[in-house]
Amino acid sequence: MFSFISGGPGLAAWFSGAAAGIGLFAVVGAQSAFILRQGILRKHIVPVVATCAAIDAVFIFASVAGLRTLTQALPWLTTVVLWGGV
């Protein structure tokens, strides 16, 4: 996806994950609607955005760390996840 990045596979994977995460923000869900509402009302914008970003970062980190732990413990799970993504 990011073939122009030459920082190695780890950096390319990070950028790919970051791009996917940013793409998820395009979907208007309850959290996005709440942030938009607070922005329109001009109430508590910085704390709301900071809190939502921090919570999202914790959830993303925990899910990636959990999946990594599972795939290290169960190597066959990598193939299942790969084909599930296909």
Rank of each mutant, 00 (worst) to 15 (best):
residue 79 T to H: 12
residue 62 A to H: 05
residue 63 S to H: 08
residue 55 I to P: 02
residue 73 A to Y: 15
residue 62 A to E: 12
residue 57 A to D: 05
residue 81 V to I: 14
residue 59 F to C: 05
residue 70 L to N: 02
residue 82 L to H: 07
residue 57 A to Y: 13
residue 61 F to H: 04
residue 54 A to I: 09
residue 62 A to F: 10
residue 71 T to G: 04
residue 67 L to F: 15
residue 55 I to W: 12
residue 52 C to V: 07
residue 39 G to D: 03
residue 49 V to Y: 07
residue 75 P to Y: 04
residue 77 L to Y: 07
residue 46 V to A: 15
residue 72 Q to A: 05
residue 52 C to T: 10
residue 41 L to C: 05
residue 62 A to C: 11
residue 46 V to K: 02
residue 51 T to Y: 15
residue 61 F to I: 01
residue 68 R to K: 07
residue 47 P to G: 01
residue 80 V to W: 11
residue 73 A to R: 14
residue 47 P to W: 01
residue 68 R to Q: 10
residue 74 L to A: 08
residue 78 T to R: 13
residue 79 T to Q: 12
residue 62 A to L: 09
residue 39 G to K: 11
residue 82 L to Q: 13
residue 76 W to T: 05
residue 52 C to F: 11
residue 58 V to Q: 03
residue 83 W to A: 04
residue 80 V to I: 14
residue 56 D to Q: 12
residue 82 L to R: 14
residue 53 A to P: 13
residue 76 W to S: 07
residue 73 A to K: 15
residue 65 A to G: 10
residue 45 I to R: 04
residue 46 V to E: 03
residue 81 V to S: 02
residue 57 A to I: 09
residue 62 A to W: 02
residue 75 P to E: 11
residue 82 L to I: 08
residue 68 R to H: 10
residue 48 V to A: 05
residue 73 A to L: 15
residue 67 L to V: 14
residue 76 W to M: 14
residue 63 S to A: 15
residue 72 Q to S: 10
residue 72 Q to C: 02
residue 42 R to K: 11
residue 79 T to R: 09
residue 72 Q to H: 09
residue 69 T to A: 12
residue 56 D to H: 13
residue 82 L to N: 08
residue 83 W to H: 15
residue 44 H to G: 03
residue 56 D to V: 11
residue 42 R to V: 03
residue 64 V to A: 12
residue 72 Q to Y: 13
residue 69 T to S: 13
residue 59 F to I: 09
residue 82 L to F: 15
residue 43 K to Q: 12
residue 54 A to F: 06
residue 59 F to V: 09
residue 75 P to S: 13
residue 47 P to C: 03
residue 54 A to P: 14
residue 46 V to P: 00
residue 75 P to M: 08
residue 47 P to Q: 06
residue 81 V to W: 03
residue 60 I to E: 02
residue 41 L to D: 00
residue 47 P to S: 05
residue 73 A to H: 13
residue 49 V to M: 12
residue 71 T to Q: 07
residue 51 T to H: 14
residue 60 I to M: 11
residue 71 T to I: 13
residue 44 H to E: 15
residue 46 V to G: 00
residue 76 W to A: 09
residue 47 P to Y: 02
residue 43 K to G: 00
residue 58 V to C: 06
residue 82 L to K: 10
residue 62 A to K: 09
residue 81 V to L: 07
residue 45 I to G: 01
residue 45 I to C: 01
residue 56 D to L: 11
residue 70 L to Y: 14
residue 66 G to T: 14
residue 50 A to R: 12
residue 51 T to D: 06
residue 46 V to Y: 05
residue 60 I to T: 11
residue 77 L to H: 02
residue 48 V to D: 00
residue 63 S to L: 06
residue 51 T to Q: 03
residue 77 L to P: 00
residue 53 A to N: 09
residue 55 I to G: 02
residue 60 I to Q: 08
residue 40 I to W: 00
residue 49 V to F: 06
residue 39 G to F: 01
residue 44 H to K: 13
residue 51 T to P: 01
residue 58 V to L: 07
residue 53 A to W: 07
residue 61 F to V: 02
residue 50 A to W: 01
residue 65 A to Y: 11
residue 50 A to C: 08
residue 76 W to L: 10
residue 61 F to E: 04
residue 79 T to Y: 13
residue 77 L to Q: 01
residue 80 V to P: 01
residue 71 T to M: 15
residue 78 T to S: 13
residue 76 W to C: 03
residue 69 T to F: 12
residue 76 W to F: 14
residue 62 A to I: 08
residue 82 L to M: 10
residue 51 T to L: 09
residue 50 A to N: 09
residue 69 T to L: 11
residue 60 I to K: 05
residue 70 L to W: 06
